[in-house]
Amino acid sequence: MPNILLTRIDNRLIHGQVGVTWVNHLGANLILVANDEVASDEVQQSLMEMVLPDAIGTRFFTIEKTIKVINKAAPRQLIFLVCKTPQDVLRLIEGGVPIKEINIGNMHFKTGKQQISSTVSLDDDDKKTLRKLHDMGIKLEIRRVPDEKIEVDILKYI
């Protein structure tokens, strides 16, 4: 069983809050970004790695590769799993990745999305996917940083 400390949805993937604040709070030593696009984009990977302390390892895997290798993680790997969308997380869970809780940190607003907090906006597909995750028994929370109080009850929006 992999040591997944937290799974976070953040369309920015790795940035200051993820790379410093959350990593320190969790005690993670590995950030695994599971996203098909970023897995093949070395420029984006390099930019994301720039914000991390040297002691933190990174992996950039496709959703499929994550499903195939996550259960081979060494016990010493304390994994912070970061995905871009709820749909990516659902695919991971349906593929057998043992995720019990999801932190939703940032989902940008764009036309067709309903803003439900200062950093989270959802379209109909996001709502449907989050409802499915909730119905599977996955705990959902919206929180930008660890010491922030959870203020939004996501269930009333999905």
Rank of each mutant, 00 (worst) to 15 (best):
M1Y: 14
M1C: 13
M1Q: 14
N3F: 08
N3A: 03
R8E: 13
D10T: 00
N11W: 06
H15S: 01
H15T: 05
H15Q: 04
H15D: 04
Q17M: 04
Q17G: 02
T21Q: 05
W22I: 01
W22L: 02
V23A: 01
N24T: 08
L26V: 00
G27K: 00
A28E: 00
A28C: 02
I31C: 05
I31N: 05
L32I: 02
V33W: 04
V33M: 03
A34K: 07
N35K: 05
N35E: 08
E37V: 14
A39H: 11
Q44D: 14
Q45R: 03
S46P: 14
M48V: 06
E49I: 08
M50G: 11
V51L: 09
V51P: 15
V51G: 11
V51Q: 13
L52R: 05
A55N: 15
I56F: 06
I56Y: 04
G57K: 09
T58C: 08
F60S: 12
I63H: 06
I63W: 08
K65G: 05
I67C: 05
K68T: 05
V69Y: 13
V69W: 11
A73Y: 01
Q77W: 12
I79L: 09
L81W: 03
L81G: 03
T85L: 06
T85Y: 10
P86V: 12
P86R: 10
Q87W: 15
Q87P: 14
L90V: 13
R91Y: 10
I93G: 03
G96W: 07
G96P: 07
G96Y: 02
V97A: 02
V97N: 07
I99M: 13
K100N: 12
I102C: 02
I102Q: 03
N103C: 15
I104L: 14
H108E: 15
F109Y: 15
F109S: 11
F109A: 09
G112A: 03
K113F: 10
S117T: 05
S118A: 08
T119E: 00
S121Y: 01
S121P: 00
D123S: 00
D125E: 10
K127P: 10
K128A: 12
K128S: 09
K128G: 03
T129E: 07
T129R: 01
D135T: 11
M136P: 14
G137S: 11
I138Y: 01
E141R: 04
I142M: 04
R144V: 07
V145C: 05
V145M: 09
P146M: 01
E151L: 13
V152A: 00
D153T: 07
D153N: 12
D153F: 09
L155Y: 14
